[in-house]
Design a protein around this nucleic acid. Structure first.
Length: 820
RNA sequence: GCCCGGAUGGCGGAACGGUAGACGCGGAGGCCUCAAAAGUCUCUAUUCGAAAGGGUGUGUGGGUUCGAAUCCCACUCCGGGCACCA
């Protein structure tokens, strides 16, 4: 489309100005009120895609708006530059991941700059920068020292094709490897963990105080999954001093226990299995081990409805409530990693137990009386207890209490809180990540690399292995070292850290990347933290946000962040996704619409305006055939505004008249509407308000008596201020032209209250709730006056046909409702 | 299965319990032009009507209220999240 101004020249000019003027570089001792605005730092996958554009459009709006409100706004940018794609690309073309990564960073940086997003680039962070790795490793060692990092054997996702462990998020929903497509296996391997479970309670409790979207908070709570119950023992029949420890949240249903179940990996399983049952039990264990997630979930789309598979062990345990023996089964519906890995089964009150009991013909004994109309299998609601000895007649809370007491005196039991949250497995058998700074010494064991030797950096002379195996494991120059403790021969840890560790503290580094020798100076960081507004995609609702919260608390506790808040992100905004044909827009789907193609036509301003205008920021955006036209519509608005500001077709008038006040009122009402929209993240309505004002001013200036200069100037200048955070380039250009000043250094406009009130407002008159007439009335009119006017209205009289109304509801000056 | 969201014109979407459909896209028509593009102006939920004016309308069915897109109950459909956590 033909534009009335040179988009490329104007946008370049101002992008240079922002880079050179330092408006958006803020020092740690800036005296202004502080505001920390942060967009989640991106993985550098190449040029920006529309998801980035959307994110940074919102972020930049916040930065510029808050700056105009007089604050020192910290707006840093960086790159989450470690990760699998770079490694895979390097394997593919035989290069080094750094080469690939650095080139992608420059592409993305250029895209972001061309969008007109402003940042304090002095604070840039790149995860793969040795100067960042140094501190990432320092933090790891602090955690290790404090016992928060440890090495242990655990079942992990193992991809046979790639010969490496995968993170959960690298495993597809159908149980295949994200990269090779092989079926992922479960393997027990020694791995590094961070003790996030130590913080489970705090992570859960602190969620309440966060100004985050409720659904993200709910997701975090569910992920942590706290549950209160009782752990107790079921003595094994015929085996002295051997008991099965189980965890239950429903001790009150103990009289209904008709069998017990252990997980296939349970340590007692072997001892419990009788010779006659050994074959079937081994069979089940074998099947479970080989079962992929695909097989385990394929039989149903509902976890509870899964076909239950198990086997009788041949042993019995004694139900402490009834003193009767009940059989012990092994089944894969009991997880080895949760609770004690064994359960008491109550088919009458638990759906999973019920389903299992149906398959294996086990008895069902109700201990809670279900409502009369209940016709399902398991009833897990409340009700009077039955068939339950001393619990009979009690409701669930009372029965729980009594049963818990009983179990603590008769079954070695105690109240117990369990979490679904597991410790965080952070080691990866990957090359392109931050090496774990530990040395394995045959005589000293695990030895931390001394701080002065950090960072441990991966070597450059590596050949990326087609098998996918990390070259770190086989690189002698890297692995062979001496033990820092005994000086003997030792090996470096070959594993690298999960990239989520990098993103768990980068916002702290942003706050102070200037102090040497520490990840950040706590005093400097404390001036900015917590992040006032964090902006990113909903896809990080659990992992990143949970890990970062954990890191923040742990950093304070190990002494690296004294005086800092224990929560990193005060307010969170999660933007909607860009969809195309119903699915997420992504590189792998080949449906990217690169922003570059717009920079020369509608410009960054036009594209930004589109993202602001297309709908509520939280909503997903459907990129359809109509989208191009909407984007052009946004650019058209800018063109129309530009022409009006230049005075094209404007009829000038020397003398004031009545229309001037109306225009001024419209201007000041728009200030309120735009500001409200920005404060409430309702950017689409802010843009709409500006479009409306343009229509109003344009009509006034070009038709009838025309425009009175001072009023026209007030309108245009105000619109420029309001537009400055949304379409920064054109606003800057026009403001500079008109006022020889930097629009982004101006103060945000404030509406004059007197101009927000009209002389006359439209009052609606309803008869029985239906609008029948309208009157122009002064806003101060009383309810009584309004009613009188309404009754006197000829149209209303006609409607009433002389009948006397039974009631008149007046809400002056907006509405009168006459009820007949 | 559980937990969140959501459903308003041809489309994206507006609407403190008080004028439903702001704003934009698309569409129709006018002006400008030799013509077109661009620009600009008017109209544009639906239905009856020549018009004035009326009827109907915010997923469905009820309810609360003088008044409901908005609040409550039940349901349908769509989107997302979690997936045997005892």
């Amino acid at each position: 489309m033909a534009r009335p101004f040179d988009v490329v020249a104007i946008e370049q000019k101002w992008q240079e100005h922002w880079r050179n003027s330092g408006v958006y570089e803020v020092d740690n001792d800036d005296p202004r009120e502080r505001f920390y605005a942060l967009c989640m730092y991106p993985y550098p996958s190449g040029s920006a895609h529309q998801g980035h554009v959307r994110n940074y459009t919102f972020g930049d709006l916040v930065v510029r708006y808050q700056t105009m409100l007089g604050k020192a706004v910290l707006s840093p940018f960086g790159f989450d530059s470690f990760g699998l794609p770079a490694e895979n690309a390097a394997i593919k073309d035989g290069s080094h991941p750094r080469v690939f990564t650095d080139s992608r960073i420059e592409l993305l940086r250029s895209s972001v700059v061309k969008l007109g997003a402003v940042h304090d680039w002095r604070r840039e962070v790149r995860s793969h920068d040795p100067n960042y790795m140094k501190y990432a490793q320092m933090i790891f060692l602090k955690f290790y020292e404090a016992g928060l990092a440890y090495r242990a054997e655990a079942p992990v996702n193992w991809c046979p094709g790639c010969a490496t462990v995968l993170a959960n998020e690298q495993v597809n929903a159908d149980g295949t490897c994200d990269r090779s497509g092989d079926l992922v296996e479960r393997k027990n391997l020694e791995q590094w963990f961070l003790r996030i479970t130590d913080y489970a309670d705090e992570l859960l409790n602190d969620v309440d105080d966060l100004e985050w979207p409720e659904r993200v908070k709910t997701m975090q709570r569910n992920w942590i999954g706290r549950s209160e119950g009782v752990e107790f023992e079921l003595p094994v029949v015929g085996m002295d001093d051997v008991a099965l420890r189980v965890f239950t949240t429903r001790p009150d249903t103990g009289f209904g226990v008709t069998y017990a179940v252990v997980a296939p990996e349970h340590p007692l399983l072997d001892a419990l299995t009788t010779p006659e049952q050994r074959a079937t039990v081994s069979d089940l264990i074998e099947r479970t081990r080989n079962a992929s997630d695909l097989e385990r979930t394929a039989s149903s789309d509902a976890g509870v409805g899964l076909e239950k598979r198990g086997a009788f062990t041949g042993s019995y345990v004694t139900n402490p409530f009834t003193n009767s023996p009940v059989p012990v089964y092994v089944a894969d519906y009991v997880l080895g990693t949760y609770g004690t890995g064994a359960i008491m089964a109550v088919p009458a009150e638990d759906e999973r137990d019920f389903a299992f009991a149906q398959v294996y013909g086990l008895p069902v004994v109700r201990t809670v009386a279900p409502p009369e109309d209940f016709d399902g299998g398991a009833y897990n609601g409340d009700g009077p207890h039955i068939n339950s000895g001393f619990l009979d007649g009690l409701d669930t809370p009372a029965a729980k209490k009594a049963a818990t007491e009983f179990l603590s005196t008769h079954a070695n039991g105690h109240a117990k809180v369990n979490f679904r949250l597991r410790d965080w497995l952070v080691s990866r058998q990957r090359f392109w990540g931050c090496p774990i700074p530990i040395v394995h010494c045959d005589s000293c064991g695990l030895v931390p690399v001394p701080l002065e030797q950090l960072p441990v950096v991966a070597p450059d002379d590596v050949v990326m292995n087609k098998s996918g195996q990390s070259p770190l494991a086989t690189h002698d120059g890297f692995r062979q070292t001496t033990c820092p403790r005994c000086a003997g021969a030792a090996r470096r840890e070959a594993d690298t850290m999960d990239t989520f560790t990098d993103s768990s503290w980068y916002f702290l580094r942003f706050a102070d990347p200037f102090t040497d020798g520490v990840p950040f100076n706590p005093e400097a960081a404390a001036r900015w933290m917590p992040v006032d507004q964090y902006i990113g995609g909903i896809e990080h609702a659990i992992l990143h946000l949970l890990y970062a919260r954990f890191y923040m608390k742990a950093l304070v506790d190990v002494g690296l962040a004294p005086g800092l808040p224990r929560e990193p992100f005060k307010r969170l905004f999660t933007q909607g996704m860009i969809r195309m044909d119903g699915s997420k827009m992504s590189k792998s789907k080949g449906n990217l619409v690169a922003p570059e193609k717009y920079y020369e036509t509608v410009g960054a301003d036009g594209l930004r305006l589109f993202h602001l205008f297309v709908g509520p920021p939280t909503d997903d955006v459907d990129w359809t055939s109509q989208t191009e036209e909407v984007i052009e519509g946004c650019a058209r608005f800018l063109d129309r505004f530009y022409r009006l500001a230049q005075g094209f077709d404007v009829k000038w008038r020397e003398i004031e008249n009545d229309s001037d006040l109306a225009v001024r009122r419209a201007v000041h009402k728009t200030i309120v509407r735009v500001t409200d929209g920005l404060d409430k993240w309702s950017y689409n309505t802010s843009v709409a308000a500006l479009m409306e004002l343009l229509n109003t001013v344009s009509k006034w200036a070009r038709e009838g008596e025309g425009a009175y200069r001072p009023v026209f100037d007030e309108a245009i200048d105000t619109m420029l201020l309001l537009l400055a955070p949304m379409a920064p380039h054109l606003s800057a250009e026009l403001f500079d032209e008109r006022r020889s000043a930097d629009v982004h250094r101006q103060t945000w406009p404030v509406a004059d209250p007197e101009l927000l009130v009209d002389d006359l407002v439209t009052m609606v008159i309803q008869v029985n709730g239906k609008v029948r007439s309208r009157l122009e009335v002064p806003p101060q009119i009383s309810d009584e006056e309004a009613s009188t006017l309404a009754m006197a209205d000829p149209t209303i009289q006609a409607f009433l046909e002389g009948a006397t109304p039974s009631r008149i509801v007046a809400r002056a000056p907006r509405m009168v409702n006459i009820v007949s």
